[in-house]
Amino acid sequence: MHELSLCESILRVIEQSAAEQGFRRVKTVWLEIGQLSGVEPEAMRFGFDVVMRDSLADGAGLEIIELPGRAWCMQCSREVAVRQRFAECPDCGSFQLQVTGGDEMRIKELEVD
């Protein structure tokens, strides 16, 4: 997808946070990435190292918390787990699903010095 530009957005948030909170170095970054967000964690790790080079997060660790895809099945009237946005209900096979979670792309927290 566009992991490289997402990493650039992450760096911008980190830099802004550093100015507000007064830290100089970032040791670890925790991200929450939903299974339906379209983000490839492996590409994210690769892009992260490249983008953070020579920044205040140079060499920082990246922890990705993967959040499962969830959807409401209209037929079953309950929440089910889905792996893809257009997948059918694993129980009844219906496509009448409303995605309720798993499209997150969030910076959760930082470990800083």
């Binding site: 911008r12 959760k108 927290e109």
Partner: peptide, 15 residues
């Protein structure tokens, strides 16, 4: 010791 900073911000929030 290092400290934790809560961000809880959407990566695409700026966009």
């Amino acid at each position: 010791q290092s400290r934790m900073v809560q961000i809880e911000q959407d990566i695409l929030g700026k966009n």
